[in-house]
C-alpha cells in the first residue's frame, strides 16, 4: 500500500511545480513575487534573497498590492557591463508599454523615459565585484533614484505607479542581485 501513497505524493508534488515563478523573502514575510521572463538557465534564484542573472537573464519582481513602492536592490556585477532596470511598468507585454528605464553599467548611469531627453550620469559607474545599492523610490508622480545612498536623480512623470521592478542583465553580463527588499513608501 505504501507504493500507492508514494505515487500519489509524487504526483501532487509534481503538479505543484511552476518553475518560472519564484518567491523571495519567504523567511521574513516581506514576500516578493518573481517571474523569470527569459530562457531556462539564464536566471538562478539563490537562497531566499538573491538572484543571479546570466547573459540575457530577465526577471520581474513584484510586491503585490503596493504601488507607491520603494525598491532596494544591491547589485554586484560579476562579469560584463551591467544591468538594466525598469520601473512604472509591468511584466505583461513590457516591451509595448512605456516605463522609466535605468541602465547601470561600466559606462555610468543612463535614465530614460519615452518622450523625454535621456539623462546620462557618467560619474556613477559599475565596477566588477563592487556591490552597489540601488534604490528606486516612487512617490506619486515623483521618483528618486539613489545609488549608494546618494540621490542621483529625481524625476517627475505621468506614468502610473506599478507593483513591479524589472531587471535584466546586459549582454554578456553576469549580475548578482542581493538584499532585495520592496516596501511601501513611508515604511523605510
Amino acid at each position: 500500500m505504501k507504493i500507492y501513497k508514494l505515487f500519489f505524493i509524487i504526483f501532487i508534488l509534481l503538479s505543484s511545480c511552476v518553475n518560472e515563478q519564484f518567491s523571495l523573502n519567504l523567511s521574513n514575510r516581506e514576500l516578493i513575487s518573481g517571474l523569470i521572463m527569459s530562457d531556462y538557465g539564464t536566471v538562478d534564484v539563490i537562497n531566499d534573497n538573491s538572484v543571479m542573472l546570466y547573459d540575457g537573464g530577465f526577471i520581474a519582481l513584484k510586491k503585490p498590492g503596493i504601488t507607491d513602492l520603494v525598491s532596494d536592490i544591491t547589485v554586484d556585477l560579476k562579469e560584463g557591463e551591467g544591468a538594466w532596470f525598469a520601473i512604472r511598468c509591468a511584466s505583461n507585454k513590457n516591451e509595448e508599454h512605456p516605463g522609466i528605464l535605468l541602465t547601470y553599467s561600466t559606462n555610468g548611469v543612463l535614465v530614460q523615459e519615452k518622450g523625454k531627453s535621456p539623462v546620462n550620469l557618467v560619474q556613477y559607474k559599475a565596477k566588477i565585484d563592487e556591490p552597489t545599492r540601488i534604490v528606486f523610490r516612487n512617490d506619486c508622480k515623483r521618483y528618486d533614484i539613489m545609488i549608494n545612498c546618494d540621490t542621483v536623480y529625481t524625476g517627475w512623470t505621468d506614468l502610473p505607479n506599478t507593483e513591479y521592478v524589472l531587471v535584466k542583465a546586459l549582454p554578456k553580463s553576469k549580475v548578482l542581485l542581493t538584499g532585495i527588499s520592496m516596501f511601501e513608501k513611508g515604511e523605510e
Binding site: P64, T67, S91, N92, C140, P160, N161, T162, E163
Partner: peptide
C-alpha cells in the same frame, strides 16, 4: 490568473 495594479496620481 495574473493581476496587476496601476496607480494613477493626480494633483
Amino acid at each position: 490568473t495574473e493581476t496587476d495594479i496601476y496607480t494613477i496620481s493626480e494633483m
